[in-house]
Structure formats: structure tokens, C-alpha cells
Design a protein around this nucleic acid. Sequence first.
DNA 1: ACATATTGTCTGCTTGACAGACTATCTTCG
DNA 2: CGAAGATAGTCTGTCAAGCAGACAATATGT
Lengths: 189, 189
Amino acid sequence: MTSQRSLGAEAPEPRPSGLDDDFGFAIGAVFRAYAKAVEAAVGDIPGGPRGYFVLSAAATGEAGSQKSLAERLGVDRTVMTYLLDDLEAADLVERRPDPADRRSRHVFATEHGAERWEELRARVGLVEQHLLGALPEESREAFRGMLCALARHVTGRDGTADPCQVVVEFGIAEEAPRAPRRGRRRSAN
Amino acid sequence: MTSQRSLGAEAPEPRPSGLDDDFGFAIGAVFRAYAKAVEAAVGDIPGGPRGYFVLSAAATGEAGSQKSLAERLGVDRTVMTYLLDDLEAADLVERRPDPADRRSRHVFATEHGAERWEELRARVGLVEQHLLGALPEESREAFRGMLCALARHVTGRDGTADPCQVVVEFGIAEEAPRAPRRGRRRSAN
DNA sequence: ACATATTGTCTGCTTGACAGACTATCTTCG
DNA sequence: CGAAGATAGTCTGTCAAGCAGACAATATGT
């Protein structure tokens, strides 16, 4: 019985308990597949999919400062530093000091970067299409829309006053002592 | 035409070109948020979200051999080895040699593991609910359904003859020479 | 029986992430 | 104005995660 995922019209029990029907597992699987495919699609762009997103942001002029970009992409600022170093070395983006605040530097796409992005965008679009291809034609847009809505929600970019505290909730409620250390294994050390 | 997703009624431009409407960015953001929340929710389970999924599979009896489990979860078999070591050390799962093929070992939940999983499942369910809470009540199940359908597709578990070649497609079509090496930065080396 | 493939484990190396220190700049407030 | 504190970005050091490859045990095919 473990995984009756029929879910059709009635599905009595809250959760079929099959891995295949688990939300977390599903999003993980889809994410991995997407990331892997994009990795291949963007080829030699430094930073892989991440680098691509940085380039996207830069090319569309919504990158802003390194800090805001890093936050939006969910990467550490130190990571952003060398990610940009590599992207800059490849002549895809450039950093320009913000005249208004000389501490911060804004990220822009170079001309070459913009061109490259256009190609890439097409390729990545294909990946996306192929992936979504598993859904019936008429649901694809709906799915995309919902996914983006969720993304906006968790990043606090929708109107919601509550920027999705999912994390916070447990972060405090649990006070998990956190596994002492889950390194490799005690090997011969 | 790369991916004009608006296409709804009129929307002139092919793509708002905003990161917020990018499929890849969105799935990444949602995935990160979910993973982080689950990490907090499962607390001290070795391996974090990953360990939780292994436990899920074990508890519902769908784990199978280490190999099949590893493949299904998208982790390397060497990683699965020490993941299971830790889980076993915590008395959550156990490995039993498959009598039919003594090379392979099947994974099961211990009694303690099963109990623990029940609690965890509830907590993780909350995370999921909270996350989906951003969608209107009536779309949630639809979204879940579509996501799971996609997951089944990319993992080749739906009926499809084509187990989603997204990767393959570019893996060969591009022959990307792959960035020479994108290590840290050249520092003082 | 022998060659070859497969499962799981172990070792070593590389990559990637994060904490913390440091510099330059901005802000605040006396 | 000038000192104190905050903030953006960079750099260094450390450590965990992951992978490639070797290996042992077992299975399969000829």
C-alpha cells in the first residue's frame, strides 16, 4: 500500500506515504534534474547554473549590489566575490563602484556577457520546456506561475507581510542540539 | 522565442526577464527554503534532510538495496555508505544482507526509527503545509500533483518510455570543454 | 573453472562553503 | 569636525562534502 498515489478525486488519507508522492523528495528530484541539465547547457560559464543566474541578473539590470545579489541568489557574500571574479575574468560581467556609496559595487553585464546570455537563455529555455513537457500542455503555465509565486513568497518578494517564516518556526521551536558532528566516519583516525 | 511564458492574453514581451519569473531561479529558491526548513525540523537526524528521506524510504519499506536507494535519492553510493553508517549508529535504520544476493544489503527502519519517523513526518508535513500556504487553498493539491508528476518523470518512474533525457541532450550536443578549473581564485599562489 | 560484472566499503584528493579578520567607506552623534 | 560604530567587499584558513579509484566479496556467463 505504501504508495497509492492515485490522488485522483477523493484520496481519503492525508498522505500516501510513498516517496514518490512526497513533496520534499519531488522538489529535490526535479531540482537536481534541472540543475544538472542547466549545468550541461551553460557549459563553460564559470560557476555553472549559479554563474548563469548571476549573468541573468546582470544582463537584465536587476543585479544591484553584490550584497543584494548574493542575498537574492542565496549565496554567501564571500562566494559571490569569487564567483564574480571568475565571471569578470571571462569578460561576462563587470563591477562598477556605486557613486552613491563607494563601498558597494554594482554588477553589470558586459556587451559580450549580454550576447552570451542571449544564447544561453535560449538553451536554458529548452531545458525548461523539456522538463515541463511532462505536464499536459494546459497545466504548464499554471505550474510555472505557482512555482514563481512560491518563490516570491519564500524570498519575501510578494506582498505578504509574513516573508515565510518556515525556517524560523522550527529554528527556535526545536532547539535541536544538532548532531555533534557528522563527519565522514571515524575511519582510522 | 526561447520561453515566453506570459503568452496569456497579451503581454507583448517574450519574457519579463525578471529573475522572479525564471523557472530555474524559482525552483532553486523554493528548494533552498524547503531544505533549510526541513533541516531545522528534523534537527538531530544524521544527514539532515537526506537522512530523513532515507529514513522515510526505510520506514515505508521502499528502500530496497543501498544501490537502488542511492540512485533514487540522487546520492553517490559512497555517500550512501556513510549516511547509513550514521543512521545505523543512531539506531534508526539497519542493514540486512539480501539472502538472494549476498553482495547487496537492504535497508530497513528499526522500531525506534519508525517511531522517530512518525514524529518527523508530522513536523515535515507542517513545513510543507506552511510553504504551500502561499498558494490558494484550491491549487495546492494540484501543485503537489504536478510536482510529483515531474519528479516521476525525471526519475523515469512514470510510464514514459523517455525517462527525461534533459541532461543527455546537452551533455552531447554541446561538448562543452568545461571551464579549465574554477578553483577559488589565484590568490597569492 | 575462469573471466567479468556488480555491490558495498575505504582512501585520498579536490571542491566548495563558511567563519573571521581586515580595509575602505558611510553614518551617527557628541 | 572627529571619534565610534556599522556596512560592503575581500582575503585567509579550516573543514566538510563529494567524487574517482582501489579493493573485497559475491554473482553471472561461457
